[in-house]
Computed example of a mutant assay.
Amino acid sequence: MSSDSSRAGAPNENNIATGAHVPHEPDLPDFAEQRSKLYRGLVNVERIACCMLLVSLLGLIMLQVVSRYVFNTPFSWTEELARFMLLWFTFVSAGFVMARRIHIAVDLLASKLGRTGTIVLDTFALLTVLVTAGVLAVAGAEFASGANRLQAPATGLPMSVVYFAAVTGFALIFLHAALHIFLNIRHPEVVPDAMENLEREAA
């Protein structure tokens, strides 16, 4: 039997009707995205924003290098703006990574537990993330609002624009963690098994 036919007979991990847990690749839509177009759109917006920020960051760095070493007239704002874009890229990416549940995780304890124990442990970890992200998002919003009068020295941007990167990132993490907790309760079959991602990468 060919590999294609064996794959056809195997459960499709992207089709939740077959009882799949997680997709084979982090780029593929997971259970929540398959069930909700709105949520899939949000995750796609996060992905596109990350790509745009990364490309813009690369462009700014290249512009800085060319202006400094080729024309010997470096711009004063490129380095500062690149740092701000790096902050936004970091926090928006954290939201996207949380949406796909591909954060680096230590599964030593989970690997010793049964299926029910894994679900309980995963839900507890998500609750911890949920509370932490919620507190940091609220505190960050208050801090960013108070920094609206401050301006960056080179670009003149309000510092609240910079600080709201953290607020956005933690808000996205809060949203995704809340959704994953709901799915753990309503659809425990979609909770990834311990070491599942590591084993899939090693295969």
Rank of each mutant, 00 (worst) to 15 (best):
L179I: 15
F182G: 13
T168W: 03
D193T: 07
V45Q: 05
A125P: 02
L179S: 01
L53V: 09
A32E: 14
V65N: 11
P26S: 08
L157F: 06
M98Y: 00
T132D: 02
L38D: 09
R35A: 13
E13Q: 15
F96E: 12
T123M: 15
A110E: 11
S67R: 13
F84G: 00
E33H: 06
T118L: 07
G19F: 04
L63Y: 00
E199C: 10
L183G: 05
A203D: 11
A94T: 06
T132I: 10
S145Y: 02
R149D: 09
G140T: 07
G117I: 00
L198F: 05
A125N: 11
N148V: 14
D30S: 07
A171S: 14
H24F: 15
H180N: 12
V106Y: 09
A203P: 07
A194D: 07
P188H: 03
F91S: 01
P11Y: 00
A49I: 12
R186N: 12
F143P: 06
V161N: 06
R200M: 12
V191T: 05
S6P: 05
S145I: 06
R35L: 15
A99I: 05
P153K: 08
I173N: 00
V22L: 07
V55C: 10
L28Q: 12
L121F: 03
R115K: 14
A165R: 09
E13V: 14
T128C: 14
V70L: 12
T168L: 12
G19V: 08
A32W: 10
V161T: 08
N12R: 10
G59Q: 14
G140R: 02
P192Y: 04
A171W: 00
I61P: 04
I61E: 14
F75N: 14
R149G: 02
P74N: 04
